[in-house]
Design a binder for these strands. Structure first.
Length: 598
DNA sequence: GTAGGGTTAG
């Protein structure tokens, strides 16, 4: 019996053609007769032999043949990747799409995922729309096209190209390809992280319209996005949506909403947060450690350490153990209040209860010392942390660098920056902002320019804080008009101006006695959709008082209270010095009345 | 693939 070499993939062919590679291969021929050899060489990964076999033939031809044949698409993929690397070429979009279609038809999903991931990573010139066109013309399975589109969206998200992911999401709708939560949820999550809340809302609405599966994660992500930008009523609407879809709010839903309320600076926010806690319990969703951590931190930020401690004790009665995060919130608050002995006592408690402090624990404690001007203690603790084998983070360094800058110790600040680089922690925008603010305080504009150039050269981008520092510096120099021009520059750089930007400029104008200009800035701010916050009112109230316009100032104070904004320490200080001492008295709600008879 | 803590500007 002599085996017939009839099968392309039969072992005998290979043995007969080139037993052990000792004989030269038959040269590649561009008709299909070479395909079995090529296939065999690929499956054995005999790349050297394959290259010899191909000789001077175009590497495209075998790809074309493989795509036209019924060989395992994984072999085609291997050839695709090898040939791109070996011949330093990029295969055409059409061939790429044919390959991805054959992988999809063979249900080789992990292979598709990594193929699309590298495709998206390396490809910067092909538009999303041409990719979709190619997907739709290079395969006829609608189902496969949908899976490909889904994975493409995910590939963009995973490559941090969320704007392209968003575009692909829209294109998929144009072509009627059906996406899934597998890609849409990460897309939503990426858009939330980038504060692109309008896009989040668009994707969410489209998911419902296109009947894409919307699960608890989708809802929770959207709710988180809305909470992040303070649209808490809309977030509650989404909770209603989710109930209507038969998805019950879970502990993450409630935690997200509670956190949203905690972060909003309105009167009664913690009351509302507490109400949601009760609601979740009534709906039989058990609060977890994270729920309590959110509440504890919320009360700390609300200047209510007593309430925070009460929740802390309540946690234990619910059978929940405080975590590192719980302690970090409390230590942070104690440190910021200057209660450093209590803060380090809390650290001891935490260690005593078997928890291991992390770098955040030390960062907040170091910050506490810094804010109290206890630099010796701060740096001692820093050394201690290093000795314990905990790596300081960029935040640790920034905390100390800022403290040095604020203390006028610019040399120490720059020395610490050198040392962080030596240890492999690289300065970020915040590091530079701290140094820039220090130099501005010294009036060293030349050094500021140099530093900004340096950060740009390192590929770091100036941010809104950098500009706010510069705006403030100009205002302090009595150059508010120049500062105003920086705002236009910020817009040109598509930086999002924030409250601090506007308030700083308003303050600059107020201090120059130019109230008109200050009020114009407020108008501009509101045109941009930003409502005046407590600090805005503080600046304007103070400005009006300084001009002797006490009744107008009082009007603004009332307006602020009516809008549910909580007066802060600065407000009280202004009201005391500028109003109470000049004949106004407060009623029980904080409204002021002029009793001097005017 | 969803929730919690730390640094900078007013």
């Amino acid at each position: 019996m002599h085996p017939k070499p009839k099968l392309f993939h039969g072992k005998f062919i290979l043995v007969n053609i080139f037993p052990g590679h000792k004989h030269p291969l038959r040269p590649f021929s561009s008709d299909n007769t070479s395909l079995p050899i090529v296939t065999e060489l690929i499956s054995k990964q005999h790349w050297k032999s394959l290259k010899t076999h191909l000789q001077n033939a175009s590497p495209i031809t075998p790809l074309q043949q493989l795509l036209d044949s019924r060989v395992d698409p994984c072999l085609t993929l291997r050839y695709f990747n090898w040939s791109e690397k070996e011949f330093n070429l990029s295969h055409s979009l059409e061939h790429s799409c044919m390959l991805i279609h054959s992988l999809a038809n063979a249900k080789r999903y992990p292979k598709m995922r990594s193929f699309l991931y590298s495709f998206v990573k390396n490809e910067n010139s092909i538009s999303v729309s041409s990719i979709f066109h190619a997907i739709s013309v290079s395969g006829d399975s609608f189902c496969a096209s949908s899976i490909i589109a889904d994975m493409l969206v995910l590939a963009y998200v995973n490559n941090m190209k969320s704007h392209l992911a968003f575009e692909a999401f829209k294109r998929a709708g144009d072509y009627g390809f059906k996406l899934s939560a597998v890609s849409c949820n990460p897309l939503l999550s990426a858009l939330v992280k980038e504060d692109k809340i309008e896009d989040v809302e668009y994707v969410y609405k489209e998911m419902i319209r296109r009947r894409i599966e919307v699960n608890a994660i989708s809802f929770n992500t959207v709710i988180n996005g809305l909470c992040k930008v303070g649209k808490l009523n809309k977030a509650s609407d989404v909770i209603q949506d989710m109930k209507a879809w038969g998805v019950l709010p879970d502990v993450i839903t409630y935690n997200t909403l509670i956190s949203g309320y905690c972060k909003k600076g309105r009167i009664g926010k913690m009351y509302k947060a507490d109400a949601i806690l009760k609601e979740m319990i009534a709906n039989e969703v058990r609060p977890n450690e994270i729920t309590y951590n959110i509440l504890i931190d919320g009360f700390c930020k609300d200047e209510n350490l007593m309430a925070a401690m009460k929740v802390f004790r309540e946690m234990e009665t619910q059978g929940l153990k405080p975590t590192v995060v719980t302690y970090n919130s409390l230590i942070n608050k104690l440190g910021l209040e200057g209660k450093l002995d209590e803060a380090s006592g809390m650290l001891d408690d935490m260690v005593g209860s078997g928890l291991k402090p992390n770098v955040v624990t030390y960062n907040v404690l170091i910050n506490g010392y810094c804010k109290k001007g206890k630099m010796k203690e701060a740096t001692d603790l820093f050394d201690d942390v290093v000795k314990q084998g905990i790596s300081p983070t960029v935040v640790t360094y920034n905390t100390l660098i800022y403290a040095y800058c604020k203390d006028g110790r610019m040399e120490d600040a720059f020395a610490l920056r050198e040392s962080m680089v030596d240890k492999g922690t690289f300065p970020d925008v915040t590091t530079y902002n701290c140094l820039i603010s220090g130099l501005c305080r010294e009036g060293n504009i030349t050094a500021v320019r140099k530093l900004i150039n340096e950060m740009l050269n390192k590929g770091l981008k100036v941010d809104v804080v950098t500009y706010n520092i510069l705006v403030d510096a100009l205002c302090n120099d009595g150059e508010s008009r120049k500062a105003a021009r920086l705002l236009d520059e910020m817009v040109k750089m598509s930086l999002r101006l924030n409250h601090v930007t506007y308030n700083t400029l308003m303050d600059g104008y107020c201090r120059e006695g130019n109230l008109r200009a200050a009020l114009n800035v407020r108008t501009r701010m509101e045109k941009e959709g930003m409502r005046a916050n407590v600090a805005t009112y503080n600046v304007l109230i103070k400005g009006l008082c300084k001009k002797g316009k006490l009744e107008d100032a009082n009007g603004l104070l009332n307006e602020m209270l009516e809008k549910g904004l909580i007066p802060n320490r600065t407000t009280y200080e202004i009201v005391k010095v500028e109003m109470v001492d000049k004949g106004f008295v407060p009623d029980i709600e904080g409204h002021m009345y002029n009793i001097s008879g005017s």
